[in-house]
């Protein structure tokens, strides 16, 4: 197919339109973040980033991701294995439930956790009596982050594993491998890019979650403020430059995510 050799005028128009849209809708917004963050110079930029509250917000955001991403990788792999390798009653329901967190408003995610762990919630009084506080602590932030990103890894792995089929794994078993050997030597190498891809998306969502976290965090400065909450807080403090400086760290992570994702895709194709 000699598509690129003789492109029609129509094709060029379509390509041009795509570039215009992507530039206006995506590139300009991205550029604006860095432009506003750096408007008052590098010195002011680093001052804003290095303020203890903002630093702590970065720390808390990273810690949350470090905990949530591995857990959801393991669970996502288990779910994908279950759904693609076995047939059982209730399978469709299971798939629908795991997808639910991604389809529902993050505010709803925050609320269901408040109704469960708040002092007036379902389990709150019980937990309170044994001295365990979940609401308004970093633990609550980790829990809602697990909730909102629950489907991400499985969503990448299920189509991949379905498409790959079970031949390789059955062959490994018939050659005498045990379950774990089969998983580590055959399954894992087959799905590794999908797994990493899901992890990258999970990470981006965890670091950026706003609605759900704002319900359960209590917004204690320097303690339970994640980066997105800190951005909002700085904005309401009339500190627009600081707010953009904090936003630029997340935008940078977004750019890294895109680069990683694009690299992973080309490796996957090879």
């Amino acid at each position: 197919m000699s598509l690129s050799a003789q492109r029609s005028i129509g094709a060029n128009v379509l390509i041009g339109l795509s570039f215009v849209f992507v530039a206006l809708a995506l590139v300009v917004p991205l550029a604006l973040i860095f432009s506003f963050a750096l408007r008052e110079g590098l010195g002011a930029y680093f001052d804003a980033i290095l303020k203890p509250d903002t630093l702590h917000a970065i720390f808390l955001t990273v810690i949350t991701a470090v905990i949530v991403v591995p857990i959801n990788m393991v669970v996502g792999a288990a779910l994908a294995w279950l759904v693609t390798r076995f047939k059982f009653r209730g399978q469709q329901l299971l798939v629908a439930i795991i997808e639910l967190p991604a389809a529902v408003s993050p505010i709803v995610a925050g609320i269901v956790y408040l109704f469960l762990y708040g002092n007036q919630g379902l389990l709150g009084p019980l937990l309170q009596s044994i001295g365990l506080q979940i609401m308004f602590t970093p633990l609550a932030i980790v829990l809602v982050s697990l909730f909102v990103t629950a489907p991400y890894v499985a969503r990448e792995l299920v189509p991949l594993m379905r498409q790959q089929g079970t031949d390789d794994e059955e062959a490994a078993l018939s050659l005498g491998a045990n379950g774990w050997q089969m998983f580590l030597r055959v399954t894992l190498p087959n799905i590794r890019w999908g797994l990493v891809y899901g992890a990258v998306l999970t990470n981006a969502r965890v670091m950026g979650e706003f609605g759900a976290v704002s319900v359960v965090s209590g917004s204690i400065r320097g303690q339970t403020n994640t980066l997105p909450l800190q951005i909002n807080l700085l904005f309401n403090d009339f500190n627009i430059a600081g707010s953009f400086a904090a936003a630029s760290t997340l935008a940078l992570i977004a750019v890294i995510t895109l680069v990683l994702k694009s690299m992973l895709e080309s490796w996957e194709r090879r």
């Binding site: 950026g208 979650e209 694009s262």
Partner: peptide, 15 residues
């Protein structure tokens, strides 16, 4: 262009 399409998934909604 292909990579940029995913920006909204990677960029936090508050940002």
């Amino acid at each position: 262009l292909d990579a940029l399409v995913d920006l909204p998934f990677a960029l936090p909604t508050a940002v």
